[in-house]
């Protein structure tokens, strides 16, 4: 029983990370039709920014942790918005070329990060509480899981509120459904593009800082390895659906944990298998629009 609880909560923690990456991917795809390969780099950069801050301020304090999370968000948002503004926008509506540009950016930035920070993992320090455990129904759950889950829930609520209560949110929701009709109402939908990139980048940057605590280190490959699972999550959840991304994040991560524990480390393969099954049964994903 305690094992199940531990796996569930750890799965939720990992799912939280997936969601932080997948939410942005899904929003960006939903509105713009762009598959953003550079999203992993936003995450990695956020993680490195957080680490640079924490090694200067002393990583053991809560203040540092919170400051590094905020910094990760700001850095992620800024870089993402710049990416949209400088690269993606020039290729308006040329989806394949937009993907290619983000591929180039992903390759170039990972190499750049390796040049700056080296290829080896850099271990991070955190407030001691995070590496302790809390007992829940007999399971000794590492505390950092709660941080992941809490942060992802806040981000989910934040994005939902933004979409629901702001004019940009209204434009984004409408644009995901029918972008050309939004322009036909006199709205310059490109401004919303920068906004979704910034939101996605902020979530990814925060995800980067949190991932560095979940795994215990930062490395230039951090974003890329999470990105692939985030892609799978977005396809399973349904491209363009935030709720789908949230559900699929949790399902995928928990499946992964259970398979790793009970079926001899087959978690990653089970996830791909799940993807295959979803495609067979429902090619548009759990909550995806009809093609």
């Amino acid at each position: 029983m305690s094992t199940i609880i531990l796996l569930l909560i750890t799965g939720l923690g990992l799912g939280a990370l997936y969601f932080l990456v997948a939410s942005g991917l899904s929003l960006i795809y939903g509105l713009m039709g762009v598959l953003n390969f550079a999203h992993g780099s936003f995450l990695t950069l956020g993680a490195f920014a957080g680490w640079e801050l924490s090694r200067r301020m002393g990583g053991e304090s809560w203040g540092t942790l919170i400051a590094s999370m905020l910094l990760g968000m700001v850095v992620g948002a800024a870089v993402a918005a710049a990416t949209e503004f400088l690269l993606i926008r020039r290729l308006y509506n040329r989806h394949i070329e937009q993907v290619l540009v983000t591929v180039g950016l992903a390759l170039a930035t990972v190499a750049l990060f390796e040049g700056i920070w080296g290829t080896d993992p850099i271990y991070v320090t955190a407030p001691p509480w995070l590496s302790q455990t809390t007992e829940i129904l007999g399971a000794r759950v590492p505390n950092d899981r709660f941080l992941m889950i809490g942060a992802a829930v806040l981000v989910l609520l934040g994005i939902v509120a933004f979409l629901r209560y702001t004019r940009f949110g209204l434009i984004i929701r409408a644009g995901v459904e029918n972008r050309s009709m939004v322009t036909a109402l006199g709205i310059d939908v490109r401004k919303a593009f920068t906004v979704v990139f910034a939101i996605g980048g902020a979530a990814a940057g925060l995800g980067g800082v949190l991932a560095s605590h979940y795994f215990g280190y930062v490395s230039p490959q951090l974003g890329g390895s999470l990105l692939i699972f985030a892609f799978i999550v977005t396809v399973i959840g349904g491209l363009g659906s935030l709720a789908g991304a949230a559900i699929a994040s949790v399902v995928v991560a928990i499946l992964q944990q259970f398979a790793n524990y009970f079926w001899g480390g087959t978690g990653d393969l089970m996830v791909v298998l799940l993807l295959a099954v979803v495609l067979l049964v429902r090619p548009t994903g759990i909550l995806g629009k009809k093609a």
Binding site: R167, L170, I171, R173, A174, M181, V182, A184, L185
Partner: peptide, 21 residues
Amino acid sequence: YVPEDREVFASLTVNENLRLA
């Protein structure tokens, strides 16, 4: 512009459709 086949935003409320416009 009132397009053929209406093209209302199905996932938005009536009021949101108007506010957007």
